[in-house]
Amino acid sequence: MTSSPNSREDAWVLEATIRTAPAADPHWQEQLDRLRPIASYDPETQTWHARLGALDLAGLQMLQTLFDTARVHGTEVRLTHVAVPAYWDGPAFRRGPDVAVAAFLEAQADRGRPLGQLPLA
């Protein structure tokens, strides 16, 4: 059986897993204020999660917020590609060139370091 060009089997999203950095108020609150609009909190794992299915303006703004939060607060951000969740109704990447784009973004963040583990300037 072959899949159609728009099959969910070939679709994926970038999933960001975010661990906040310890900080005293008001830096702690500022860190949370940056994450709340773009991510959801999982109290069981004590991590934040965000998903991205397109490198459109909203997606790039989300990535920029994650980069900025990591740079300013030391927040740890890990990006992985995952199959599109059943509840996902947003855009999704397809196998092929998009995989290379995701790998490029992660590699260019800072060679040799995972995204979010960038040194503070």
Rank of each mutant, 00 (worst) to 15 (best):
M1Y: 05
T2A: 13
S3T: 10
S4I: 01
P5E: 08
P5G: 09
N6Q: 10
N6R: 07
S7F: 09
S7Y: 06
R8T: 14
R8V: 12
E9T: 13
D10L: 10
A11K: 14
L14E: 05
E15L: 03
A16I: 00
T17R: 13
I18W: 00
T20F: 02
A23D: 07
D25G: 07
P26C: 06
Q29H: 12
Q29D: 11
Q31K: 09
D33E: 14
D33N: 13
R34S: 09
R34D: 13
R36Q: 10
P37T: 07
P37I: 06
I38V: 15
A39I: 08
A39Y: 07
A39D: 01
S40V: 13
Y41C: 03
Y41D: 06
P43V: 03
T45Q: 07
Q46F: 06
Q46T: 15
L52D: 00
G53I: 01
G53P: 07
G53F: 04
L57D: 13
G59N: 04
G59S: 07
Q61R: 14
M62C: 12
L63P: 00
F67D: 11
F67W: 09
D68E: 10
T69E: 06
T69V: 14
T69Y: 04
R71A: 10
R71C: 01
H73R: 05
V77A: 00
T80G: 00
T80L: 05
H81V: 03
H81L: 01
V82R: 14
P85F: 11
P85A: 08
A86T: 12
A86H: 09
Y87V: 15
A92G: 06
A92Y: 02
F93E: 03
F93I: 03
G96D: 12
G96V: 10
G96A: 03
P97K: 12
P97R: 11
V99T: 12
V99G: 08
A100P: 00
F104M: 14
F104P: 01
F104V: 07
A107I: 04
A107K: 12
Q108F: 12
A109I: 03
A109D: 09
A109S: 14
D110T: 14
R111P: 06
G112C: 11
R113H: 13
G116E: 00
G116H: 05
G116T: 02
Q117F: 07
L118C: 04
P119Q: 07
P119T: 00
L120Q: 15
A121D: 15
